[in-house]
Simulated scan of single mutants.
Amino acid sequence: MTSVSGAIGPRTSLTVDESGPHNRVLVLWDIDHTLVNSGGVSRDAYAAAFRAVAGRPLRRLADMTGRTDLHIARETFRIHGVEPTPEQTDALLARLVSELNDRVELMAERGAALPGAGEAIKALSQRSSVVQSVLTGNVKANALLKLETFGLSTECLALDVGAYGDDHWDRRALVSVARERARAVYGDGFSGRRTVLIGDTVVDVEAALENGASIVAVATGGTTSKELAGAGAHVVVRDLRDVAALEANVEDLSRS
């Protein structure tokens, strides 16, 4: 059953058994519209990258909602009548990294970390049972750039065990990628609901459910609380401001 913001209240203490690797919890954060708003600069970077690689203006960008950069790049070529080769896709993603770097000051001016994002990451980092990383559609270089640009606590995130938009085109497959990387570093564990995704789209919900993971859906993007709940999210919150409630949600979901 889905709980909507407030259904699981804040607690004053957390009591997770931290005695071994099987009790660890892997928390995987989405980035865009969950932790940050990049002010539309990613779309500008895609347009410039496509023009440089394809030699023509971008008419239309593929749907970005919850999609990986690898998926977006391939579908954007197809929209323009091109069946992309791996080399073309790699070239577009490499140029995307360059174009976003060129716009980092504009991104910092237009965008922002979303309310509560930094506080939530820091709060969860105080729990030795929790390993935090990201599961994002961004290629890794752009994911790191966005986190750093908006002052989020990258030292609290085990970024080498995350999963990124250049690891696989299908976001659902990224859950297994992140779990395997986490197990290689921290030992066995993170099975089932002890992996908790936090994201803002129906695709985030689907990725969690198809892998038996937990999902806290955040209605800070273009998807409503009702839509997220209807997709089967275990918990839906309006935003990340209530850090204590988020901690309680992570604990309760990982015990399910």
Rank of each mutant, 00 (worst) to 15 (best):
S5N: 15
G6R: 15
G6P: 09
A7T: 14
G9W: 04
P10Y: 04
P10F: 02
R11K: 15
T12A: 14
T12M: 14
S13I: 09
T15H: 13
V16R: 15
V16P: 00
V16A: 07
V16M: 12
D17F: 13
D17S: 05
E18D: 06
S19A: 10
P21K: 06
H22P: 03
N23Q: 14
R24N: 13
V25C: 05
L26E: 01
W29K: 11
W29M: 02
W29C: 02
D30G: 00
H33R: 04
H33A: 03
T34W: 00
V36R: 10
N37M: 12
N37I: 02
N37F: 13
G39W: 12
G40I: 07
V41Y: 01
V41H: 10
V41I: 14
S42H: 15
R43E: 15
R43M: 15
R43T: 15
D44P: 03
D44C: 08
A45H: 01
A47E: 08
A49Q: 04
A52Q: 07
A54R: 07
P57D: 00
L58S: 06
R60D: 14
L61Q: 05
A62F: 05
T65A: 11
R67G: 09
R67H: 10
R67M: 15
R67W: 03
D69Q: 01
H71Y: 13
I72R: 01
E75P: 06
F77Y: 08
